[in-house]
Amino acid sequence: MEARTQPTTHATMLGRTPPGAAAPAGSAPPPLKAESRGLSFHYGKFQALKSITMPVHEHRVTALIGPSGCGKSTFLRCFNRMHDLYPGNRYEGEIVLYPDNTNLLDRDVDPIEVRMRVSMVFQKPNPFPKSIYENVAYGLRVRGVKNRNLLDDKVEASLRGAALWDEVKGRLHEVGSNLSGGQQQRLCIARALATDPEILLFDEPTSALDPIATASIEELIAELRRQVTILIVTHNMQQAARVSDYTAYMYLGELIEFDRTDTIFFKPRRKETEDYITGRFG
């Protein structure tokens, strides 16, 4: 993929978290893929997110952690505007996608276009009631791709990308729901990869899986960062520590601290973060 130029807004991006902390001494931080600026979100009268400003670095894994109800999933679902599916939801502020500086939350931006650029993997594996092949090809079909060769290539590449190809190559036309939980989740990852998304959102992708399946998904996420920018919500702090490059700690709809993952886990600057990490809270 082409290298993306670092946007000029970089200096202003960190907001409430002091800048500089995100980058390890001596190495320039990777370019930005997206940035949330002063994002607030309301479910009807309830304000679920309070003015969140946070960068998303390209080809890095950013983990969102925090106690239940802190708004981490709500925040994640702003990135592909899933909230637009339900009435009474309202965004304020912006999420800018680079390199084209598009505000994803702009009224004039079609949520469908956003979802074509920002894909998502859900908490519980949700394969469609179709064959493995059609599950992976779904996003391409939605994009009007009819060329059989192209579809075949993309399905294989995506299944390989999701480390599922070897397990299913002989039964591509069987129903996806016959796979095991971990395989189903990898199928959903392949489905999300097939359309070459710019950002891949993971919403607690392993919470419904056993430890072995969890390990394989985590390994996969670490691999995937080479092709796509990743945002992951997790309730499991060890998971955040294992897979992510950056971590954001959220509490009651606010972003308490954002930094490199090792900094958050070993030298958090905020007392609240430290309490949560060390298990004194939450």
């Binding site: 592909n80 899933m82 599916l85 469908i112 276009e113 979802r115 074509m116 894909s119 998502m120 859900f122 908490q123 519980k124 949700n126 394969p127 469609f128 009631p129 179709k130 779904y138 996003g139 079909r141 939605v142 994009r143 959903c188 489905r191 999300a192 359309t195």
Partner: peptide, 29 residues
Amino acid sequence: VPMALREGSFAMGATRLQTALNVVFPAAL
């Protein structure tokens, strides 16, 4: 049909009709 299935389809950039015909209808067949 569980909402998760619809969300999966919408998250791929599908419209309501695409979701209804390609995902919900077969699931409820």
